[in-house]
C-alpha cells in the first residue's frame, strides 16, 4: 500500500513551502499570517502527494487498470483540506478587515490583562502586602487601565 520510493523533489518543495509559511505566521500582521497559512497548507497538501506514492493514471475503474492507478485516498483528503483552507482564508480575511476597521491596522495586539497582571506584580514589589493593594475600599482600581 505505502510508497516504495518517496519523491525527493516533492518532499523538498513541501519543506520549503512549510518553512516559508511558518516564517510568515510568526509575523504580527494578520494578512501576512494569512499568506503564511495558505503557503503552509499548500506545503502540507504536497506532502500528501509524497504520501500517495508514485503518480499513476486517473483512479477510475474502466479507464486505468488497477495496478497503474494512483492512490485516490490521499487525493480525497487533499481535496477536503483545500476546501477547509479556503474557508479558513475567508474567515481570517474577514477578521483582518474587522481589525483594520476597529484599530486602523490588522496586527495581533498584546493581551491587555497580561499587562495588568505584570503591573500588579511590579506594584507588589513596592508594597507591604498584595492583599492591602487589592482590598481598596474606595472602589477605585489599584491598577490604572
Amino acid at each position: 500500500m505505502g510508497p516504495v520510493t518517496a519523491n525527493l523533489t516533492l518532499a523538498l518543495v513541501a519543506g520549503a513551502l512549510i518553512a516559508c509559511g511558518v516564517y510568515l505566521i510568526t509575523e504580527r500582521s494578520l494578512s501576512r499570517i494569512l499568506i503564511g497559512v495558505v503557503l503552509a497548507s499548500n506545503g502540507v497538501n504536497v506532502l500528501f502527494l509524497v504520501a500517495s506514492g508514485p503518480a499513476g493514471g486517473a483512479p477510475i475503474i474502466g479507464l486505468t487498470p488497477g495496478p497503474q492507478m494512483s492512490d485516490p485516498l490521499p487525493q480525497a483528503m487533499v481535496l477536503t483540506a483545500i476546501v477547509i483552507t479556503l474557508s479558513v482564508a475567508a474567515f481570517v480575511m474577514t477578521m483582518a478587515y474587522r481589525s483594520f476597521q476597529i484599530n486602523g491596522d490588522d496586527e495581533v495586539a498584546d493581551d491587555v490583562e497580561d499587562a495588568r497582571i505584570a503591573e500588579l506584580a511590579r506594584a507588589d514589589l513596592a508594597s507591604e502586602s498584595y492583599e492591602e493593594m487589592g482590598f481598596s475600599d474606595t472602589g477605585e482600581d489599584v491598577v490604572s487601565e
Partner: peptide, 29 residues
C-alpha cells in the same frame, strides 16, 4: 477580535500539524 486572532492562528497551526501527522501516518502505513 484580538482574542479571536490568537485563537484562530494557533488552531490553524495545529490543523496544519495534524495534516502533516496524517500524511506521515498514511505514508508509513
Amino acid at each position: 477580535v484580538r482574542a479571536g486572532s490568537v485563537y484562530v492562528v494557533v488552531n490553524l497551526v495545529s490543523s496544519a500539524l495534524f495534516l502533516v501527522a496524517l500524511a506521515s501516518c498514511y505514508a508509513a502505513t
